[in-house]
Amino acid sequence: MTDMPDVSRETHDRLERYADILLRWNQRINLVSPHDLPHLWSRHIADSLQLARLIPSGSTSLVDMGSGGGFPGLVIACATDARVTLIESDQRKAAFLREAARVAGVQVRVCAQRLEVADVPPAQVVTARALAPLSRLLEWGTRFLQPDGFCLFLKGRNAEDELTTASADWHMATTRIPSRTNTDGVILELSDIRRVRDHNNE
Rank of each mutant, 00 (worst) to 15 (best):
I45G: 03
I45F: 08
I45T: 11
I45M: 08
I45E: 02
A46T: 03
D47Y: 07
D47A: 10
D47M: 02
D47T: 05
S48Q: 08
S48Y: 10
L49H: 03
L49W: 00
L49Y: 00
L49E: 03
L49F: 01
Q50T: 00
Q50D: 02
Q50R: 02
Q50C: 00
Q50G: 01
Q50V: 02
L51P: 02
L51K: 00
L51V: 02
L51S: 03
A52Y: 04
A52S: 13
A52D: 01
R53I: 04
R53Q: 05
R53N: 03
R53C: 01
R53H: 06
L54D: 10
L54V: 09
I55N: 03
I55D: 01
I55H: 11
I55Y: 02
I55Q: 06
I55A: 05
P56C: 05
P56R: 05
P56H: 11
P56Y: 14
S57N: 15
S57V: 15
S57R: 15
S57H: 15
G58W: 13
G58H: 15
G58C: 13
G58S: 14
S59M: 07
S59D: 15
S59R: 15
T60S: 13
T60Q: 09
T60W: 04
T60F: 08
T60A: 12
T60L: 05
T60H: 04
S61E: 12
S61L: 07
S61G: 07
S61A: 14
S61P: 12
S61C: 11
L62E: 05
L62Q: 04
L62R: 06
V63D: 09
V63P: 00
V63C: 13
V63H: 03
V63M: 12
D64C: 08
D64T: 14
D64L: 07
D64M: 08
D64V: 09
M65F: 06
M65H: 05
M65Y: 08
G66V: 09
G66Y: 10
S67I: 01
S67K: 04
S67N: 09
G68N: 12
G68H: 07
G68F: 03
G69N: 03
G69P: 01
G69K: 02
G69W: 02
G69I: 00
G69V: 00
G69Y: 01
G70A: 03
G70Y: 08
G70R: 12
G70V: 07
F71P: 09
F71Q: 12
F71S: 06
F71H: 11
F71M: 08
F71D: 06
P72I: 01
P72F: 03
P72A: 02
P72H: 07
G73K: 10
G73M: 06
L74Y: 11
L74G: 12
V75R: 06
V75E: 05
V75H: 08
V75Y: 04
I76F: 05
I76Y: 06
I76N: 04
A77D: 04
A77F: 11
A77S: 12
A77I: 08
C78H: 14
C78S: 15
C78D: 15
C78E: 14
C78W: 15
A79Q: 07
A79V: 12
A79G: 11
A79R: 14
A79W: 10
A79D: 13
T80R: 13
T80V: 09
T80P: 10
T80D: 14
